[in-house]
Every structure is written in structure tokens, then in C-alpha cells.
Amino acid sequence: MSSTTASVTKVRTASAGISGDVIFAAAAKAAGIFVLVLLGAIIVSLLIGGMPAFIAFGPGFLTNADWDPVQQIFGGAVPIYGTLLTSVLALAMAVPLAFGIAFWLTELAPVWLRRPVGTAIELLAAVPSIIYGMWGFFMIVPFMSEYFQPIVIDWLGDIPLIGGLFQGPPFGTGVFTASLLLAVMIIPFVAATMRDVFMTVPAVFKESAYGLGCTTWEVMRAIVLPYTRVSVVGGIMLGLGRALGETMAVTFVIGNTNRIATSLFGPGNTIASLVALEFPESPAGSLKLSALLALGFILFVISFIVLAVSRMLLKPRAN
């Protein structure tokens, strides 16, 4: 290759580079800003749409448990409570199990098994939620209604104080079943995150601890968990984020009732589920539609807070 052709090529790339850089930078910037604008537009349109409901009911919208489309009274307390309760219960069930999975995969499982099991968990995370919903409705609900709930109601229903949590007709659906299903759905997320952060612990730390005579559990408790604590909480928050917004699967099994149930087996409702169910029959401009949009706004705010917290906690450690 002669030197002249080489220099010509060089010049051409350089000039293409200058204008190309500008165009590309502008395009990338536009894409970034577009996301922000889109996010802002969603929040604003939800807020504007929900305004009539916020004005009509004031702050009482958050605490009023009455949802009466005939009287045009709409309160958000039941779906908000249901959303938070099912999500928290789901976490309570999912986190210990997810921790067990991650612990086993990183410390105990034979090396040849770690990859297939890890992949299987990631696959579970990809199953569409409607599939979980159908599975829940046709497998879990009958099981709950036939076996689990009647037995638990018989055993625990008469105990003072906590008995009230386990009473009512054994529909099979309800808050408890919804939480169980949500737990199954978020386990893959939480377990996969935990496994990944457990693997970031430098081997030298763990080996030193083993060298001092620590058991596997002691290494986990004294080295791995303290090292990854913040990221683990972040992973749990990611799971919580998914549980909060889950719609279809919950709709199938929660019982869709706008009453606050005292029993865990009683039916309830969540924001996402209520919005999905009531939307088609809400005429434009009606107070009901506005109340649904207001609920959407509240869900947005809750999810935003949860995700922001998880973002902050998941930030890589400074050192």
C-alpha cells in the first residue's frame, strides 16, 4: 500500500469523524432526553387525568375504603392496602427461599450443577405472568380451596388473636394465594441477583475465613453477607418492584373484592388489578376513569420510590 492512498483514507475518516461525531452525539443525546420526556409525560398525563378524583376526594382518597361506582364514591385505600400487603407478604415468603437458592448455588452445589440450575432460574424469570396466573388459578387455587385452607382454618381459625387471620370460606383465592403466587414469580429475580452479588465477594476473603477454620455458614454470615448486604437489599427491592406492579397473575387469584379483609384467606384487590378490570367500562370524562388514573399515579409513585431506593443500594461499593 502506497503512502498517498493511506493518507487520503486517513483524511477521509477524520472528516467523516468530525461530522459523524456531532450527528451521533446529537442522536444519542436526543434518545436520552426522549426517555426523560416520555417518563415525565406519563407522570404528568396520569396526574392530569387523576386530578378530578384528587380534587373531588382530597387526601381522603388514600384512606377511604369505599369503592362504589353506583354512588360515584371512589376511595383508594383497599387497592393501595392490597398492593402493599400482597407485595410485602410475597417478599416474606420469597426472600428466605431465594437466599437458600443463592447460597446453595454459590457455596454448596457441585460445580457442574451450578450452571444448569442458574440458567433454569433465569428462565423462570422470563415466563410471562399470564402463565403464572393460569397456573395459579387452575392448580394453586383448587389445592388451596380443597386441602390447605380448610385444614388451616380448622387448626388455627379458633385461636384467639391470630385466629382471625385464618377464617372465612375457603374460596382458594384471596390475599394469601396472591402473595404465594407473587412469591413464586419474584423468587427468580431475587435469587439471581443474590447469586450474582455473592459471586462478587473476592475469593481471598472467603479463603482466609476458611483458613481460620470457619464453617460454610460462618463464612456466609460473617464474610459474604456483610460484604454484599447493600446489594442484597437492592435485589430484594427489585423483586418488590415487580410484585407491586404485577397485574394479570394477581387478577386471577386475589378475589377482586373492594373490601379490606381481616383474614389472609379473604379476597382483596390491588391497584394494577383494579385498573385492568375496571378500565374497559369507564366512560371518558367520568369520575371513575379519573379515580383509576389517580390510582395509576399512586402506583407509579410507589414503584418509583422502590426502584429509586434499589438503584441507590445497588450502586457498586466505593472501595
Binding site: 369503592w67 361506582p69 353506583v70 374460596f171 377482586n256 373484592t257 373492594n258 379476597p267 367500562e281
Partner: peptide, 11 residues
């Protein structure tokens, strides 16, 4: 849709 006093809802 109404304010049901008893029972459970299904889609």
C-alpha cells in the same frame, strides 16, 4: 360494576 357486600370477584 357495583360495591359488592359479599363474595369474591372473577374475571
Amino acid at each position: 360494576s357495583v360495591k359488592w357486600a359479599a363474595g369474591t370477584g372473577a374475571k
